[in-house]
């Protein structure tokens, strides 16, 4: 294992994130605050409480998930796509590094960044609402697993993408709708009957529900289903990465 190489990639990516510190970390703080103003104040004044939790607090886990998922995908996909685009990928290909080491470096860095974004949103939320996290351990575990699995997913997109359009199309067409329809801002029990059933096909529902359970102890779906969902998603991403590796991956011509 070339640990120096993993470290080099990781540090390189983190430096890149910190170079765009404002954009990386200020924008989630700003957008979270805006969500609180718009959803919390405007809608929250009408929806008093959901399952015994004030609406402002209720949307916090969903907000964190929304940012963490989209940030993981966009950071990890860009991280590996950019060297392909500007040609610096020659270094990765001619260095004594394995595909696995490249994955660990890039995915690790992207996951770290989104983890911090998640924490920043949580802290920001504290200024707006009272939060009493019931299961901090589970909360952390869900957050870390989500950061990792969605960064893996982003990495796959970055390897696959041949241009910037392809790079953005999946996050735009799949991730964002699934997250918005996944119960970030409402409980799926509030939906009319048939929609509740349809919603259960959205994998993001399970993640957000599990994450919300770790905050408030209430969930839309059983917590075990949430755990299975996040594990399955991680496993699928790992399998795809393994498959890409076995079949020769697209960064080498």
């Amino acid at each position: 294992m070339n640990l120096q190489a993993i470290k080099a990639i990781y540090v390189h990516e983190m430096v890149r994130f910190f170079r765009t510190l404002m954009q990386s970390f200020l924008s989630p703080v700003l957008s979270t605050s805006l969500y609180f103003v718009v959803f919390g104040a405007a809608i929250g004044s009408r929806i008093d409480q959901i399952e015994g939790v004030s609406y402002g607090a209720f949307i916090v886990p969903g907000l964190i998930m929304l940012s963490v998922m989209t940030q993981s995908v966009s950071n990890a996909s860009f991280g590996i796509y950019f060297p392909k685009f500007i040609g610096t990928v020659y270094e990765l290909l001619s260095a004594p590094v394995s595909f696995l080491e490249i994955v660990i470096g890039y995915v690790g860095a992207a996951a770290t960044k989104s983890f911090f974004i998640g924490v920043i949103i949580l802290v920001t939320a504290h200024f707006f609402v009272d939060l009493d996290i019931q299961h901090p351990g589970a909360m952390l575990a869900f957050l870390v697993l989500t950061c990792l699995s969605f960064s893996l997913f982003g990495f796959i997109i970055g390897i696959w993408a041949g241009n910037f359009e392809q790079l953005q199309i999946i996050p735009l067409l799949i991730i964002t709708p699934l997250v918005f329809l996944g119960g970030s801002f409402y409980s799926i029990t509030m939906l009319p009957g048939i929609w509740q059933t349809i919603t259960l096909f959205n994998p993001v529902v399970y993640l957000i529900s599990g994450f919300r359970w770790s905050f408030f102890g209430t969930a839309d779906v059983p917590i075990i289903a949430s755990l299975l969902a996040i594990s399955a998603f991680t496993a699928i991403c790992l399998a795809i990465i393994w498959w890409i590796f076995r079949t020769g991956y697209k960064i080498r011509s």
């Binding site: 190489a5 990639i9 540090v11 270094e91 260095a95 004594p96």
Partner: peptide, 17 residues
Amino acid sequence: EPFETVWNSVSFTRGLF
């Protein structure tokens, strides 16, 4: 990489190896 410093760029390669 356009925004990377010379020093970081050279260190990066050394690490990769």
